[in-house]
Design a protein around this nucleic acid. Structure first.
Lengths: 345, 345
DNA sequence: ATACGTTCTGAAATCGTTTTCAAAAGCCGG
DNA sequence: CCGGCTTTTGAAAACGATTTCAGAACGTAT
């Protein structure tokens, strides 16, 4: 069933209608619209009035076709429902809106196939640039787009070795500090729950974790590095396993909030108590952590700022004469100390 | 600083290039692209090959300009960061994606001015339809757009008296059941925290609340209806006030999760304990409520389904010959019973 | 071979803008 | 009142597709 043009009844009022109403030509109307060239005060006035009178609104499709500029940005996320990404989306949206750009939202659900489809659609829609959180397999798809001259900024994760700007947090250092904080508070047998996938974020968080441990001269048994998919069910599974060890850890460092939520459930189900029986710090803060009892110490990422900054970088790069070289922005993540990591005993 | 066309280096490969490579005319290429008319097997083959060879991707701007169809939908939300709206966004996105539509995201932050700007931008971008959660002042703005023939679906709230489809939940009935549940569990002095704005959602939730009370023959002192802005700080303020009454309520019914979060903090700060000292049920479930201790009874809205259904309605209406009459879809909200409303005493 | 009805095909118009180009209009001093 | 400026202006050519229209090619019946 195809759509009938007729049934839409779109009252398309064009630049020609304005011209007629103002007693001038489309060219002149366009000139006052874009504010580009000289046009006499009288005509300008007439045109402005006519625009009001006939209720004209420019057709951005037509304009974009001519100017090759659409003033819209693609935003590709893994999961808009996660607080991190929705905050990033809001940041990007606010920045874009302020500068007159629109945001085309794509949610890949972390699937490479969907990611590919999104990129293709965005290209077809002629977006000026794309902000995106890469999923596995991004590198090869991206390559062809870069040649087409599309501007990109990656957030959260990085595909390394590509000449693309990125906005991320200091995963390594923030993790180091979080684990250091646990150690300083007397925890000694610290296990880590992390992703099985080798993505930059998790790799670096694991790196910071190890650094803190070795610096404090603490051992890290292989069994204390638990890897799984970043779902809350795998968080549960991994934590359950860790807690079943005969010499179980006295604290957990968890590298994602979804893993963390599952881990907390596992702790509760094991009849253990956060704080009294086991310490925990989770990378990526979510509102629930502040409300829980006891509240959960977490590493807060400036998600809103990440989204905003990404939009800003892309817009600046679009609007500058000579596209600036790719820049790597690293924003600080902040350890929010709450009750789940109080000094031991 | 204006953008230079030259600096983009967009290698725009058009339908003409394909035609040349295939040794035919642009018309024929277009025909195989749209699959509309008859074209010989030989030519079709040649065109398909040429498309691959030159790496052609259609320019949706140009197509949209000609066909008046952009295959994109606007999505206007009050706050993408709220779990309700981000789930709705995901639902809308998934449905749209599946049917070949893109989503233009707008976040108004509940501000009428932003809402207006969003609508204007969406119109200029020639979106085929708009899914939106109206904020105050939507009625008059909308009017002009309806005349322009844009398709609309409202979600969450309703502007009444407009010939627009909507997808909402059964606010009244679900609230009735939630309050009935409190009463059945022995609570007698139930106060309500709700919005000061007269928006349909909150009005109906208040309605269901009153209905349950009067049906049970329970009194409702004026002081037990507390109204404020739907922020967590106002939730705190209102709950604090309610708890300070000499004869304080033995349960709270809260009509939004943000108010609820504030109320929970107020309860804790008053050194009262949810469940032992005071019952609470919150309209709109968020992940935190399941994780808290004690966990919070809440009314779960099918947010994802709301978004999906809204997209579906708009796409069907767009693609049908004769636009169907506006429909009002009411999805069921579900009471999720947890610990915060266990039987009294 | 001619005429006719299909099926295929390409030239050209169109969608609503912007932008180039050249002509028109205004201003100035002589 | 006229040449030589600079502003203003409108006609027309893009932008990259789709679609109308009319002609070409082809098969078949006469």
């Amino acid at each position: 069933m195809k759509r009938k043009r007729t049934s839409k009844r779109k009252t398309t009022v064009t630049i020609h209608d304005v011209a007629r109403a103002a007693g001038t030509s489309p060219s002149t109307v366009s000139r006052v619209l874009t504010g580009s060239a000289n046009v006499s005060a009288a005509k300008r006035e007439a045109v402005l009035e006519a625009i009001q009178a006939v209720g004209y609104a420019p057709n951005l499709l037509a304009r974009g076709l001519k100017t090759q500029l659409t003033y819209s940005l693609g935003l590709i996320l893994n999961d808009i429902q996660s607080p991190f990404f929705s905050a990033a989306a809001k940041g990007a949206q606010d920045c874009a809106m302020q500068r007159g750009y629109a945001i085309l939202l794509c949610d890949t659900g972390e699937e490479p196939a969907a990611q590919k489809r999104c990129l293709e659609m965005l290209r077809a829609k002629q977006v000026d640039g794309v902000i995106f959180a890469p999923t596995t397999g991004a590198a090869m798809i991206l390559d062809s787009f870069l040649q087409a001259g599309t501007h990109f900024v990656q957030i959260d994760r990085q595909v390394e070795g590509l000449p693309i700007s990125s906005v991320v947090v200091n995963d390594d250092q923030a993790s180091y500090e979080a684990v250091h904080h646990l150690i300083a508070n007397g925890y000694r047998r610290i296990a880590i729950l992390t992703s099985e996938l080798s993505v930059t974020t998790h790799d670096r968080r694991l790196g910071g974790f190890k650094r803190a441990l070795s610096e404090a001269g603490l051992a890290l048994p292989d069994s204390f590095v638990l890897r799984g998919r970043t779902s809350s069910s795998d968080g549960y599974r991994l934590a359950h396993k860790a807690l079943s060890y005969s010499r179980r850890p006295d604290a957990l460092f968890v590298t994602s909030s979804r893993l963390g939520v599952g881990a907390l459930r596992a702790i509760r189900d094991a009849r253990l108590r956060v704080r009294d029986d086991i310490g925990i710090v989770i990378f990526d803060d979510i509102p629930a952590f502040a409300l829980m009892h006891p509240s959960i110490t977490a590493v807060r990422q400036p998600a809103y700022e990440i989204g905003w900054k990404a939009a800003e970088i892309i817009i600046e790069s679009l609007e500058s004469e000579e596209p600036p070289p790719p820049q790597q922005v690293v924003l600080p993540a902040e350890l929010v100390i709450r009750e789940s990591s109080v000094p031991r005993r």
